[in-house]
């Protein structure tokens, strides 16, 4: 399946979704005006991914966000819900939630997501 790669910009994050190299990453800043359109290819990719069988069932989904706006926060939850669906399909998903050591708001945001979805979250500092 074709990887999805989006270059990071001033107001949108870098995104890598690559099942060949088993790399899944969202990093940078996410403040798009229209978060629904921005994340729509990501959700579409994950839908297709859920139908694929992969050599390594371990999916480590890295989130390294510096900032995200509230519209993105809703879309992030949509992404995690899709990831939740992958687990039902035999893939073992772990979300690696990175936060800057002094950034309590980002740690709290990660903890809240982990309470909202049935996924394994690893909180990591960078």
């Amino acid at each position: 399946m074709e990887p999805l790669f989006l270059e990071g910009k001033e107001d949108t994050p870098k995104i890598i979704l690559n099942s060949q190299s088993n790399q899944y990453l969202i990093s940078g800043r996410s403040l798009p005006e229209d978060a629904t359109s921005f994340y729509s290819p990501v959700l579409k990719w994950l839908d297709e991914f859920s139908t694929q069988t992969v050599a390594d069932p371990n999916v480590k989904f890295e989130v390294r966000l510096e900032y995200f706006n509230t519209a993105s926060s809703k879309l992030l939850l949509d992404i995690f819900s899709k990831l939740e669906g992958l687990s039902e399909n035999g893939k073992k998903v772990t979300v690696q939630w990175y936060y800057s050591e002094d950034d309590e708001d980002m740690l709290e945001a990660g903890e809240e997501y982990s309470e909202l979805v049935d996924l394994k979250f690893e909180m990591k500092t960078y």
Partner: peptide, 30 residues
């Protein structure tokens, strides 16, 4: 505020203006 935020983020939908209905709550929390 945390409870209200979690409720809206999980049950709310994005409006046609692109808002999640979370902006003011997020401002107050931060």
């Amino acid at each position: 505020l945390k409870a209200l935020y979690k409720e809206i983020v999980s049950k709310g939908t994005i409006s046609d203006k692109g808002g999640a209905g979370l902006g003011l709550i997020d401002i107050a929390r931060k």
